[in-house]
Amino acid sequence: MVIKNVRIITCQDSQVVEQGYVEVKEGKITAVGQGEYTGNDPEVLDGQGGFLTPGFIDAHCHLGMWEEGLAFEGDDGNEETDPCTPQLRSLDAINPRDRAFGEALSYGITTVVTGPGSANPIAGQICAMKTWGNVIDDMVVRFPCAMKFALGENPKNTYSDKSQQPVTRMAIASIIREQLYKARRYQQDLERSQEDEDTDPPDYDIKCEALLPVLRRQIKAHVHAHRADDICTALRLFREFDLDGVIIHGTEGYLVADAIRKAGVPVVCGPIITTRGKPELANACRENPMLLMEAGVPVSINTDANELPIDMLLTSAAIAAGAGSRPLLWEKALEMVTIRSAEAAGISDRVGSIAPGKDADLCLFRQPPVGLLVRPEWVMIDGKFTHQSSNPL
């Protein structure tokens, strides 16, 4: 298939192809060109001058783990019986038939990074998945793509009611640190047993096993942190264990932007559209993403759905992009919900931009997509039309 006569917003090195075409074969992008298509592919779709973008990515949400319209029956996001649960797999809890997946798809969101909540200091394994499909195993982009950690108010409130650790920020960090040290020792014992046949391997430990990819920097460490002091604690843990870290939410990130920049750590900001409904949000401001970007920090935008409806992702990007002293062009703002989100999840080899070799996750718009509830004319995932307002062919 070839999609021709489109303005291609590649989200790859800020490149925009004013009049071009994209070739798709077997679910992958195989060519991106400028000008008229002169090949012989029999299946050609005329985009009629529309805007062609990558599918959008929500870099942090909880789709399918807190199901829309359900209470306890659909609440599978927080295992509040143990503050340290790295062995939990979001893959075993996500219901891909949650109606929010369809709503995401209708607004061009083709990939979501969804996982456990923030009740536990170590909460479990996060999944990056497509928003179209019936069987979650077939929808996965990468699992696990990250491990969920949480600092601050949520673990404190969860366990203070149970008269159990942690009830202070000290204890939260201590639980994380202790388990990472155990996992590091477990890793060392495993390596010794592999190098020396006379050395027995350690007894199997499912918590330590789950943390090995984090210690090896094979997956990201996503840390829920709102307050500036919690952000700095996360940076300290990243340094101590040499983790490939990402700050999630980063509400007060603008107060410690230089420290985040020096650490080389990205921030997934959001939800942007929210009230100051708890003490950690007292200093929330919509300028935060732009202030972080101006400081040199890689920034992506998330909805934290179901905290904010998933269909507000592009609206959130528009608000964030316009909130700073130097508003972003919408083409640049689009990167906060495409390539920057993909990088924060460790999946930019698959999705996040329009480039040869990447998944053919594409959206066609008749107007710039960064705005209030703007819907695409059609959405494609892996080269297949999955949502359309009219028959594209």
Rank of each mutant, 00 (worst) to 15 (best):
R7M: 13
C11H: 06
S14Q: 15
S14T: 15
V17Y: 11
V17E: 09
Q19N: 14
Q19P: 01
Y21C: 03
E23N: 00
I29W: 04
A31Q: 04
V32G: 03
D41S: 04
P42S: 10
V44Q: 12
G50H: 13
F56M: 07
I57R: 06
D58T: 00
D58R: 00
H62C: 12
W66L: 14
E73G: 07
D75N: 10
G77L: 07
G77K: 08
E80C: 15
E80L: 15
D82F: 10
D82G: 00
C84L: 15
T85W: 12
S90K: 04
G102Y: 02
S106F: 12
V113S: 06
T114H: 00
G117W: 07
S118D: 13
S118G: 05
P121F: 11
Q125I: 00
C127E: 07
T131H: 00
W132A: 08
G133P: 05
G133M: 05
D138T: 09
P144S: 09
A150E: 13
G152I: 08
P155E: 04
P155S: 08
Y159A: 08
Y159S: 09
S160V: 14
Q165H: 09
Q165Y: 06
V167F: 02
R169I: 07
I172D: 10
R185K: 15
R192C: 13
D198H: 10
T199G: 07
P202R: 10
Y204T: 02
K207M: 09
C208N: 04
L211C: 12
L215K: 06
L215Q: 05
A221T: 04
H222N: 07
A225G: 01
H226I: 08
H226E: 10
D230F: 04
T233E: 04
L235T: 03
L235D: 02
R236P: 00
F238I: 10
F238T: 00
V246Y: 01
I248Y: 02
I248M: 11
I248P: 03
T251E: 01
T251L: 10
E252A: 04
G253E: 05
L255T: 07
V265H: 02
P266C: 09
R276Q: 14
G277P: 06
G277F: 03
E280N: 09
N283L: 13
N288I: 03
L292W: 11
M293H: 07
E294T: 11
A295L: 14
S300Y: 01
S300K: 06
I301P: 06
T303C: 08
E307R: 03
D311R: 15
A317M: 08
A320Q: 09
S325V: 07
K332H: 13
A333C: 13
T338I: 03
S341A: 15
A344C: 12
I347R: 02
V351L: 03
G352V: 11
I354W: 01
D359Y: 13
L362T: 02
V370S: 01
L373T: 04
P376F: 11
F385G: 09
T386M: 10
